[in-house]
């Protein structure tokens, strides 16, 4: 039996979506914005309350890039690798982010501060290259500025939701 708070959290999500046809993806978005990722016990509880087989839930989670199975770290850093950003130095930014944080895309720093990921176009191509840190979108970023942006985050409480 899952913990009561978890049961209650999921009940809110389940109540919102259970009677709407085909709303599993919406429920998973709610769940991820509550926990920052999709913990296994939360997926189990969602399966129980929404009466959806667990396998169906995992089948969906693993198909879509945005759903995470691991806790993402306090600050989610997304380097945009859409075409415009790619052409205007997105790769250099990614290199810089990897070097500064010491991790590869998809990984979280050992202290749990940063999660690095690659975004497939954030639709801000006019301001390329762009990076988001949590919900904040940084425009026309230069590699030398990225380090400052990252160190400015350290210690700040934030995270969970992210825009990619």
């Amino acid at each position: 039996m899952a913990e009561q708070t978890l049961v209650d959290d999921i009940a809110i999500i389940s109540k919102r979506w259970k009677n709407k046809e085909g709303s599993l993806i919406m429920a998973l978005h709610d769940l991820q914005s509550r926990f920052g990722y999709i913990p296994r016990d939360a997926a189990l509880e969602l399966a129980r309350q929404m009466e959806i087989p667990l396998a169906r839930i995992y089948e969906v989670i693993t198909f879509y890039h945005l759903f995470k199975l691991e806790p993402p770290g306090k600050h989610v850093v997304s380097v945009c690798m859409g075409t415009a950003c790619y052409m205007k130095g997105g790769e250099k930014l990614l290199e810089k982010a990897k070097e500064t944080l010491g991790i590869e895309p998809g990984e979280t720093t050992p202290d749990g501060e940063f999660h690095l990921q690659v975004a497939r176009c954030l639709g801000c191509c006019g301001l390329a290259p762009v990076v988001t840190i949590n919900e904040e979108l940084l425009a026309k970023v230069r590699a030398e500025d990225l380090e400052n942006h990252l160190s400015a985050c350290k210690g700040k409480e934030e995270g969970k939701g992210d825009a990619s």
């Binding site: 046809e21 085909g22 709303s23 599993l24 993806i25 919406m26 998973l28 978005h29 089948e59 969906v60 198909f63 879509y64 890039h65 945005l66 759903f67 497939r120 990619s164």
Partner: peptide, 20 residues
């Protein structure tokens, strides 16, 4: 939820139905 193929209409329908 981040899948380019979901712009294709039949894939989009599957996604609206809550599937892969």
């Amino acid at each position: 939820a981040g899948a380019f193929v979901c712009g294709e209409e039949t894939a989009l329908i599957a996604s609206v139905e809550g599937r892969r």
